[in-house]
Design a protein around this nucleic acid. Structure first.
Lengths: 150, 150
DNA sequence: TCATTACATTTGTATATACAAATATTGTTT
DNA sequence: AAACAATATTTGTATATACAAATGTAATGA
């Protein structure tokens, strides 16, 4: 469906405007698919994102700053996000002894187990979200998106 | 900057995953540019979106359902969004006499004047957000994004 | 050492969003 | 007409997000 039909506008939109709107629409679609898929695991997309970052650390703890930097959708309040994950016993927090300003966050065994359960679902989701595009188209799209945000 | 460098991951990501992440990154970048530009007009992106929809109606009122359908980022609570715009005297609300369940929303003179002030800023923003892509690349990107969400 | 600055996180506040339940109005069926 | 379903909006609740101010800790210079 074309942007004009969604917005029900008679005006012809510039290609720049169309790209920016389509970007929002595509992003909203894929992220809401992600959200509804994660919902059955009782976890938000942001929380899932943090867990994956921590898994990538391989036992090494990460402090809040690092987590925030690496998040795809930088949210402005990592403290409260981590609080939620602690409530769910998916991560642990302790004060860094070398620099008591810093907080060290590590993923728990339960956190790793949850990720293991989620992984195949996410894989399915990724396949499904991109099913209309060929390998070549995906590469082309990736290049253009990188160019757009550079 | 490549996705891998942002996420600081050693693992090689599949092209599907990369596309989906880049989509989020690009969308977050452009929408946050939009937000910060609108901020000086004391209006949110969603509120701006509603005002544009109402302008497109050309005096004809729109009801809440219609507005919600046409919004780029469907938000789940149009009532409260309209409330904010009423507080700012940018739109007016009245009950539809033919069907008293419906609410008719129209943009005020102040609303139209604000849009007129914002328009050139948005134009500049659109130019800037897409400056790294040629006309051909924009068309290609638009096609791929439409395909992705179809 | 004391003041200043920088750094890292937390807290407060306002708004945004998702979702479910409640309310009000209209249309339909018996 | 009364009961019921359908439609349109509102309200409540929980969480998410943006941003500024506050707090606590460490490093630096006078």
């Amino acid at each position: 469906m074309k942007v004009e039909d969604i917005l029900k506008t008679k005006a012809t939109l510039s290609i720049k405007k169309k790209v920016l709107i389509n970007l929002q629409l595509a992003s909203a679609k894929t992220s809401s698919e992600m959200m509804s898929s994660l919902k059955s695991f009782d976890i938000s997309a942001q929380q899932f994102n943090v867990l994956r970052i921590l898994r990538g650390q391989e036992k090494k703890p990460a402090n809040l700053n690092t987590i925030q930097e690496r998040m795809v959708n930088k949210m402005s309040n990592t403290t409260r996000l981590i609080d939620k994950l602690i409530d769910k016993k998916l991560v642990e927090r302790c004060i860094c002894e070398e620099n008591r300003r810093k907080i060290e966050v590590t993923i728990t065994k339960e956190g790793l187990e949850l990720l293991k359960k989620i992984d195949p679902e996410i894989k399915k989701l990724e396949e499904n979200s991109t099913k209309n595009l060929s390998e070549i188209e995906l590469k082309e799209l990736n290049t253009l998106l990188e160019k757009l945000r550079s």
